[in-house]
Computed example of a mutant assay.
Amino acid sequence: MTRGGFGRRIAVAAFVALFSVCLAMTLAPRAGWAQQARQGVNPTAQAVKEEQLLKELDRVTGRVSIPDSKAGTLIQPEGREWRAYHERTLHWIGGIAILGMLAVLALFYSVRGKIRIEHGWAGVKIMRFTTFERFVHWLTASSFIVLALSGLNVVFGKVLLLPLVGSDAFAVFSQWAKYAHNYLSFAFAAGIVLTFVIWVTENIPNRTDIAWAKQGGGILGHAHPPAGKFNGGQKLIFWSVVLVGAAIAASGYVLMFPFYGTNIADMQVAQIIHGVLGVLMIAVILAHIYIGTLGMEGAFDAMGTGEVDLNWAKEHHSLWVEEEMSKARAAGGGAAVPAE
């Protein structure tokens, strides 16, 4: 045998061996698939479906080794919606509510002016609120003012305050504002509970409130409709403070103690409730402050000293004055005492 013939045989043998290996590698998976098919196994059952991919299109998740599994979610569609609410929608709601209320009050004052005591000062005062009642009012009011200012800093601080004071001062102020917001929330919640307990029986709406509202409550025009210790407007403020304030406090505690029975979506809903109700509450309280100070002569004395002028009381709370007079006559004393 020649050397050339021997080489050709080796080449043919190598080619046959290589072809056999390739054929075996090609047929082996098909045989496995055929066997799985005979056994009722679908080899693509665990494959990712197109629907799954579409669902995860707006979400980036991964696996984490730390106990907090929520850290594995890096992006979620709801987070984008919440960011849009926090950076744009809440700004519009707060701006319209607060600035709109200030504009309405300014217009009303320019047209109506301060509501005077029509019969002048009587020089005789009647006790309207006790020391404890005034303490509850100022506990709730003062804590709410701090909560409102610190909360507005969260909403508008980066836009309005940061450019004025600089980043360092803004950071320090925001940190202390956060502490004040968190800790004074307990005082505010206590004030809401005490407010409800001591005044709820006198703030039940009745037919007198309807008649009071029809006559403008003594604010629109110069009529002085009869009212008890609290008129229809004050009852509206009372229930706003109690119900809306309670919702603000509850949602705030959800945010203060996160993920105790809640998930990320629940936290986002709590922030929306807390923010929207907060700015609306500020607008309502601005109207309350206006009436109690600049808007009505003699009104501040009720929560200032606890005693109000008798003529003021007769004009704005005539039914309550009659009730107090009846109690005084039954007790053999006088409901009104000379002013100092």
Rank of each mutant, 00 (worst) to 15 (best):
Phe6Cys: 04
Val16Ile: 15
Leu23Glu: 13
Ala24Ser: 09
Ala24Ile: 13
Arg30Glu: 12
Gly32Lys: 10
Ala37His: 10
Gln39Pro: 05
Gln39Ile: 01
Val48Asn: 01
Glu50Phe: 08
Val64Lys: 02
Ser69His: 06
Pro77Thr: 02
Glu78Met: 11
His86Pro: 01
Leu99His: 03
Leu102Gln: 06
Leu105Pro: 03
Leu107Ala: 15
Tyr109Asn: 12
Tyr109Leu: 09
Gly113Thr: 15
Ile115Cys: 04
Arg116Asp: 12
Val124Tyr: 10
Val124Trp: 09
Val124Thr: 12
Met127Asn: 07
Val136Ile: 15
His137Ala: 11
Leu147Ser: 06
Ser150Asn: 08
Asn153Tyr: 09
Asn153Pro: 00
Gly157His: 08
Gly157Ser: 04
Leu164Ile: 05
Ser174Gly: 05
Ser185Asp: 08
Leu194Lys: 00
Ile198Asn: 03
Val200Trp: 14
Thr201Arg: 15
Arg207Asp: 08
Thr208Tyr: 01
Ala211Leu: 10
Trp212Gly: 01
Ala213His: 10
Ala213Ile: 15
Pro226Met: 04
Ala227Lys: 03
Gly232Val: 00
Ser251Met: 08
Tyr253Asp: 04
Ala270Gly: 09
Val279Pro: 07
Val284Gly: 03
Ile285Glu: 08
Ile285Phe: 14
Gly295His: 07
Ala302Lys: 03
Ala302Thr: 07
Lys314Trp: 10
Met325Ile: 03
Met325Phe: 02
Ser326Cys: 02
Ala335Lys: 05
Val337Leu: 04
Glu340Asn: 05
Glu340Trp: 04
